[in-house]
């Protein structure tokens, strides 16, 4: 059954979107946006929100569409906070705050009707943040060196301590083992 929820309706990339207001901490203007090379397309940059470094999310990229133009200083944004993680969702414009009928959708984008019966796409900020995090972690996973280095330099000592292995290996300069 559909519930009535308070949502913020916003415009982005020629379409209209909505997000439940309970996830939105504030509406802000973006400061200077620093691009983050190697970040996944869903993370369009970072900016400084009163001393906190906040990533700017590209909703279009995160729902599998063509990424939006890079965000710029002065663009509007919804600051969302989920489980202590803060992010900015770049918007073209904030249209209204309304109570709309929302059907349960498991976090996937779902089309609902606004107060005048026009379609808007409801997104779930929590799901978007999880996707962005998963994408960032995927970048990490391709860095196989992390794994190998961890195996090399981090393991021997604790293991020795645990198993009491005799004569821990010494290594000289031609390997990375320290």
């Amino acid at each position: 059954m559909a519930d009535l929820r308070n949502v913020i309706v916003f415009a982005l990339g020629g379409a209209r979107w909505a997000a439940e207001i309970r996830h939105v901490r504030e509406v802000a203007s973006l400061g200077f946006v620093t691009a983050v090379p190697t970040a996944p397309p869903g993370i369009a940059g970072v900016f400084n929100l009163r001393g906190t470094i906040v990533p700017v999310l590209d909703v279009l990229a995160l729902v599998g569409r063509a990424p939006h133009l890079p965000p710029r200083q002065g663009d509007g944004a919804l600051i969302v906070e989920v489980d202590g993680a803060i992010a900015a969702i770049r918007v073209d414009n904030v249209d209204e705050v309304a109570s709309l009928a929302v059907a349960p959708a498991d976090g996937e984008p779902v089309t609902i009707s606004d107060s005048r019966g026009r379609p808007v796409t409801l997104i779930d900020p929590a799901t978007l943040l999880r996707r962005a995090l998963a994408a960032a972690q995927a970048v990490r996973a391709t860095d196989a060196a992390d794994l190998a280095d961890a195996t090399l330099s981090d393991w021997p000592r604790p293991i020795d301590a645990l198993t009491g292995a005799i004569e821990p290996p010494e290594f000289d300069g031609d390997t990375t083992i320290g």
Binding site: I43, V46, I53, V54, G84, A136, V139, R140, D146
Partner: peptide
Amino acid sequence: VRPLGPLLAPLPLYAGATI
């Protein structure tokens, strides 16, 4: 030095950020 936050911390190229 300021932390990058949970979303960006996994990126291996960065040790943090500053303002």
